[in-house]
């Protein structure tokens, strides 16, 4: 790692002030950021440690509203019986991080805002991984783990374990910045960068993610991840679904894919197809097909289209409590 300064603010306001300076980066659990620094991928002058900032850590269940502080560790969330009972799919998403060390260190905010694992990005070729003459290293190179829904030149995938579920739930992100607090849908935290300078999240300088808030009442959610190994391994594909309305009919269905696109990929057409429908193996299969409509696989990731279809089908099955 290159040399850097370090500040440990006690309050959100202090953290915001420190992060407004150029070259400052927020340090949460460190499991991603330290690797980026070791690999010299992102230059940083100062780390602003959020570990001691008051008000960023904790879980509140208030009626049907679940509030999770960004610095809550994945393990703390997993151990919170109330949160897991209210939203059992959380357990699946967290257990997908099959390492107690990462669950103890990694935070909810860190999971949501971790940088892409794209091996070109991690080797210093940039988020878009373009050659000097503008060709995509991803399309010409090895793209087995890359996006099946690329967005412009962005072909990496969003790696968050929690984002698909939170987006499916319609959760809100609470962000603090120099201008105070703003709330936005979790999906609006993300963007597909179109230039080498842009990042894949929408936080402005000085802004920090304070936490997320979701209404967990009156809906059924499920997460299904396809991982090759049962031990610690990135999912090859993930699907999260939220069904609202009483069974067997789904008044509304939200289907979101992870590891499929540069952002959590909302399969809107698939959700629409199911809305107002009874879930049967036929409607579920139709939704799974609709979820991958428009996929643009590359030379080495065609299999991920099949994985997406399967993940959607199985997530819907779990959410509806049916054998798929």
């Amino acid at each position: 790692m290159r040399p850097f300064g370090y500040a440990a603010p006690a309050t959100v306001q202090q953290a915001v002030g420190l992060l407004a300076a150029e070259g400052s980066e927020a340090l949460a659990g460190g499991t991603d950021l330290l690797s980026l620094l070791k690999d010299d991928v992102e230059p940083v002058d100062r780390l602003v440690a959020l570990r001691g900032v008051a008000g960023l850590s904790g879980i509140e269940l208030d009626g049907g509203t679940l509030r999770i502080g960004a610095m809550t560790t994945l393990q703390e969330l997993r151990d919170h019986d109330g949160a897991i009972a209210a939203l059992p799919a959380l357990a699946v998403a967290i257990d997908g991080v099959a390492s107690p060390q990462l669950r103890e260190m990694g935070t909810v905010g860190g999971d949501l805002l971790q940088r892409p694992r794209c091996w070109y990005y991690r080797r210093g070729f940039g988020l878009l991984a373009l050659t000097a003459d503008g060709r995509s290293m991803v399309t010409e190179g090895d793209n087995r783990y890359h996006a099946i829904f690329p967005a412009g030149q962005a072909r990496f995938v969003n790696p968050s374990s929690l984002a698909p579920l939170l987006v499916a739930l319609g959760a809100e992100a609470v962000v603090h910045g120099p201008a105070g607090e703003r709330r936005l849908p979790v999906e609006a935290l993300y963007q597909a960068p179109q230039t080498a300078e842009e990042r894949e999240n929408t936080l402005a300088p000085g802004e920090i993610l304070a936490g997320v808030e979701a209404n967990v009442a009156g809906s059924r959610s499920a997460v299904y991840e396809v991982r090759q190994r049962r031990s610690l391994d990135w999912p090859l594909m993930a699907a999260a679904v939220t069904l609202t309305g009483s069974e067997p009919r789904a008044e509304k269905a939200r289907i979101v894919l992870g590891h499929a696109a540069p952002t959590p990929h909302v399969a809107a057409a698939a959700g629409d197809l199911l809305s107002g429908q009874e879930l049967t193996s036929e409607t579920v299969a139709a939704a799974a097909d609709a979820a991958v409509e428009g996929a643009q696989p590359m030379s080495g990731n065609r299999y991920k289209v099949q994985l997406a279809r399967t993940a959607v089908r199985r997530a819907l099955g779990h959410a509806a409590g049916m054998e798929i």
Binding site: A7, A8, T11, V12, Q13, G17, G55, S57, G58
Partner: peptide
């Protein structure tokens, strides 16, 4: 002590230590 202030950005303000905003290192 999570009963108040979660996500509000107000927690800990009373305990704020001006020193804590100082930067140490490299």
């Amino acid at each position: 002590g999570l009963t108040t202030g979660l996500l509000t950005g107000e927690a800990g303000a009373a305990a704020a230590d001006s020193e804590a905003t100082e930067t140490v290192g490299p």
